[in-house]
Structure formats: structure tokens, C-alpha cells
Amino acid sequence: MDMMKVANVIFMDKMVENEIYSHCIRKLNCHYMPEETMEQQAFGLVGGRIDNNVLSVQMVIPLCENFRYDQSMRDDMNEAIINYSIPAELAVEERAWTASPKEVQKALALFDKYDLSLIGSYHMHHENSWNGIQSKELPSKLDEYLARDSEMVMFIVYISDTGEAKVRAFYEGKLGEEIKIFFK
């Protein structure tokens, strides 16, 4: 049985929450680090522990390189966006994020060093993520498609027009499988 699926609550330290928000807001405001893909998208990995149906988020690692531009990923990602995404102002070729295998490997090593497991990923949605009225606080059909069979938690960080941030968690990006987050 997948332990993530049986988790019914997530605890997240306020410092970790603030690190996620800072990463997303910085990228949305076009303040890029030299090593980052220069785009208004933020993506990161989430490390933690599970104990008695409780996930405890201990660490996040913001990722820098959007690997979706690598030739090996480009066509598959474009096809997924065409088939599953909501229309947006951005061109298909400029949407979505794929984690760099090199960055994932480094993150896994760091999680291992602190006896943590990779429990999921986070990414942001904002008012310009797509057109239409579908709530940007929730995973999109594309999110669910990309998270299928991952056995991970997808943390959606919504940044409003006023800059307020909110994070919600969904098992494999499924709308019907939201996990309540408590901040401590």
C-alpha cells in the first residue's frame, strides 16, 4: 500500500512555507538567479517523513533548470500541453516544467543525508497561468496527467494578483484527493 495515499494530514513548518512562497513570488516578479531558467514559473521538490498517516514536510529544494526545453522532453511535453491544458496566452512551447534529472539526483542525495524521503513537488499558479474561470488554487487536468502514478503529493501554490500566496496539497494532483495542510 502506498503510504502517501493513506496520509490524511500534512504538517508544514512556517519557515518551509515561507521558502516556497519566496521562491514563487521571486520568479513571478522576474527576479532570477544566474543559474535559473528565466521564466515566471517556479518548481521545487518537497522532502519529509510519514508517520501514522501524517506527512511532515521538513525541507524544500527550489529547482533552477526547466528541463522541458531539453530536446529529449520537448515533444512529449508539448503534446501533453496540447492534449490536457487549459488555453493560455503563453505559447505551448513556453508552458509547464520538467525537473532536471541532475537536480533531482542532487535533491535526493540531500534528502537522504537528512533521512528524508521525496514526498512530492510544488509549483505555482497565478492569474496568467491560463485563461478562463477554472480555479488556479486547484490542480489542472495537465497537473493530474503529469502526476499520474507518481505516488507523490502535488503542492499547488496560488499567487493572487495582490501577491498573496496560498498552498494546497493533492495526492497525485487529483482534485478529489486533497490533503489538509496545517502550518506550525
Rank of each mutant, 00 (worst) to 15 (best):
I119F: 01
I86H: 03
I61M: 09
W130A: 09
I119T: 04
R68Q: 13
G176K: 08
E36D: 11
S100K: 03
M3N: 11
G44L: 02
G120M: 01
I159R: 01
Y158G: 04
N18Q: 15
V54C: 11
I50E: 08
C64H: 14
K113A: 11
K174T: 00
D13W: 01
K5A: 13
K180M: 09
Y32G: 04
N128F: 13
I159T: 01
E93K: 13
S100L: 01
N53P: 04
S117P: 11
M154Y: 02
N18P: 06
P62W: 01
E151L: 06
D2V: 06
R95D: 07
H126F: 10
L90D: 14
E172A: 03
R148A: 15
A169E: 03
E127R: 05
Y158D: 08
A88Y: 02
N18A: 14
L110S: 14
W130K: 04
P101S: 10
Y122E: 02
R148K: 15
L146I: 09
V6I: 13
I61Y: 03
Y114M: 03
K14W: 09
C30K: 14
R168V: 01
E35C: 08
P139C: 04
A99F: 10
F67T: 01
E103W: 04
E36L: 04
G173W: 03
M12Y: 05
E36N: 05
Q71S: 14
H125F: 05
P139M: 01
V16Y: 00
D75F: 07
N128H: 12
V104R: 07
L142C: 05
E39P: 10
E39L: 15
G48H: 12
D2I: 07
G176H: 10
M1F: 12
E17G: 07
L146V: 10
F155P: 00
H123Y: 05
Y114L: 04
F170N: 00
A147R: 00
I179Y: 10
Q71E: 15
K106W: 06
K166T: 10
E39F: 11
L116G: 02
M12L: 09
K113E: 13
V46E: 00
D149R: 10
R74W: 08
N18S: 12
L110N: 11
G47T: 07
V54K: 10
I119M: 07
E127N: 08
A147Q: 03
Y69E: 07
M73L: 12
Y21S: 04
E103V: 06
Q40M: 15
I82H: 13
E127T: 06
M3S: 12
Q105F: 09
R26C: 07
L90S: 15
K27L: 12
S121Y: 05
V54I: 14
L142M: 07
P62A: 04
I61R: 01
H126P: 00
A96S: 15
G163M: 06
I133S: 14
W130E: 06
Y32V: 05
A165E: 03
G163V: 06
M33Y: 15
V153G: 00
H126S: 06
D76R: 09
D70R: 14
M15Y: 09
A80R: 12
Q58V: 11
E144L: 00
M3A: 12
A147I: 00
K5P: 10
K27F: 02
L116K: 01
A7K: 00
D51V: 09
I50C: 13
R49P: 04
E89Q: 12
K180F: 08
L146P: 04
K136S: 05
E65C: 09
H126I: 00
S56I: 10
W97V: 02
E164I: 11
M154W: 02
D112F: 10
P62N: 06
